[in-house]
Computed example of a mutant assay.
Amino acid sequence: MISYEPRERWRPNAATLEHLRRKVDGGRDNRDNFAAACKDCNNRRGKRDWLSYTSIKRNEF
């Protein structure tokens, strides 16, 4: 569940919407470009594309 309660948004495992293709890379704000991710993962992804980050997180490299 994605919560908009201020006290819930600061938890590391709070649910967030993540852009699969970052806006700076030409991604748009449409539902095909969003995925649910915990806040910690969303923040740690940094400049990596979504597929690379997911593969690294799963130890596929």
Rank of each mutant, 00 (worst) to 15 (best):
I2M: 03
I2C: 03
S3D: 09
S3E: 10
Y4E: 06
E5L: 02
P6H: 00
P6D: 05
P6Y: 03
P6V: 01
R7M: 04
R7E: 07
E8W: 04
E8Y: 05
R9I: 09
R9E: 05
W10T: 04
W10F: 02
W10R: 04
R11C: 01
R11H: 09
R11Y: 03
R11N: 02
P12M: 00
P12T: 00
N13M: 12
N13S: 10
A14L: 05
A14N: 06
A15G: 12
A15S: 11
A15D: 08
A15Q: 05
T16S: 01
T16W: 01
L17W: 07
L17R: 05
E18W: 01
E18K: 02
H19C: 09
L20T: 06
L20E: 07
L20C: 07
R21E: 09
R21F: 00
R21A: 05
R21G: 01
R21S: 00
R22L: 04
K23P: 01
K23E: 09
K23R: 14
K23M: 08
V24C: 05
V24K: 08
D25N: 03
D25C: 01
G26L: 10
G26P: 07
G26S: 09
R28Q: 08
R28Y: 02
D29L: 06
D29V: 04
D29P: 04
N30I: 08
R31N: 07
R31H: 08
D32K: 14
D32A: 13
N33S: 09
N33Q: 13
N33I: 11
N33C: 04
N33A: 12
F34E: 07
F34W: 15
F34Y: 15
A35P: 01
A36K: 10
A36C: 13
A37D: 08
A37F: 07
A37C: 13
C38A: 06
C38E: 04
K39N: 10
K39Y: 12
D40S: 05
D40Y: 08
C41G: 00
N42I: 01
N43I: 14
N43W: 10
N43Y: 03
R44G: 15
R44Y: 15
R44T: 14
R44N: 15
G46Q: 05
G46H: 02
G46A: 12
K47E: 11
K47L: 11
K47V: 07
R48S: 11
R48K: 10
R48H: 04
R48L: 15
D49T: 09
D49Q: 11
D49A: 08
W50D: 05
W50R: 12
W50H: 13
L51E: 14
L51G: 10
L51Q: 15
S52R: 15
S52A: 12
S52D: 15
S52W: 12
S52G: 12
S52K: 14
Y53N: 11
Y53D: 10
T54M: 10
S55W: 08
S55Y: 10
S55I: 08
I56F: 14
I56V: 14
I56N: 09
I56H: 12
I56M: 13
I56A: 15
K57C: 03
R58D: 05
N59M: 00
E60N: 00
E60T: 03
F61M: 06
